[in-house]
Design a protein around this nucleic acid. Structure first.
Lengths: 150, 150
DNA sequence: GACAGATCGTCAGATCGACTGACGATCAGC
DNA sequence: GCTGATCGTCAGTCGATCTGACGATCTGTC
């Protein structure tokens, strides 16, 4: 791979926010895949588990809203997790249009263990920045996401 | 879109580097699309133009290497730009396996104007961070991309 | 109560980006 | 002049996303 060359001459690119974000994200995705591989879930799926594992049980649509994915995407995501016995769908008693999705015991367990691995991976990923700066970096990202003028 | 709800309860998510990067990138992509829409090129395509517009003419594969895209992806990218008369392929005289891709005058012109728009858009996008911090943010991204331990 | 309009989950289909594997043309080393 | 590698191309695949439609269900209004 001509990666070294890429960095040597790529000034035009490493000035670009789009390029940087995309490739940093791609690299993180690789690390994430490696770190989560023993658990048999992707980063996306782990995020779904994390959202569903919060305090109260929520519907598919609510989960989709939090995750920022389409409701049709959520169907496939929950399908996959249910097939692996990590979550359970049941019809809501209050509103029978809704599927309430809850973690199974296996799901809870996997969530805990995989989250540890993810946290370790992220810490290592941000290590080049140094501790305080890593925290700052996360805050900056949160800021960019929150304060969109729309 | 239930974005506000997403932020209110999404603590589990806004702690996640993967979630943050993905969604910040998505938001930037939207802004980028809007900013470049008058020019008829996508952010990807503008990046290709920028790489090809550097000092010396380069081959498709070399360009692909810099951009970090597959060589088969590069074919389609250059196809599109050539169809619009922004670049020209010609066989290299030194190595006739290679396509040397160069900007046309139209391509040069569009590159200049669209790059201005992109720079403005990025500055505005990073505005919530404040000037010095925005610069710091870019440096952090570059660092994460450069210092991968591999 | 019954009906109209909205909401939720589901599915089929389209799109888009990226990759794999193959191919012909060309180059480089022996 | 051969053999093996490289470059560009194309076809096919895969994953993630969205659109549009549908049935089931809820809510508000008369």
């Amino acid at each position: 791979m001509a990666e070294s060359g890429s960095r040597a001459t790529g000034d035009v690119l490493t000035q670009r926010l789009g390029y940087l974000l995309k490739h940093v994200q791609a690299r993180l995705a690789e690390e994430s895949a490696r770190a989560l591989e023993p658990f048999g879930v992707s980063g996306r799926e782990l995020a779904v588990l994390a959202v569903l594992g919060e305090d109260r049980p929520i519907s598919q649509l609510e989960g989709a809203g939090k995750l920022g994915v389409d409701r049709t995407t959520m169907v496939a995501l929950v399908d996959r997790l249910e097939r692996d016995g990590l979550v359970e769908r049941r019809r809501s008693e209050l509103d029978r249009r809704k599927n309430v999705v809850a973690l199974t015991e296996r799901g809870e367990d996997l969530l805990r263990r995989a989250e540890d691995a993810r946290r370790r991976m992220e810490r290592e990923f941000l290590a080049p920045l140094g501790g305080a700066e890593a925290e700052w970096f996360l805050r900056a990202l949160r800021l960019l996401l929150a304060d969109d003028s729309r």
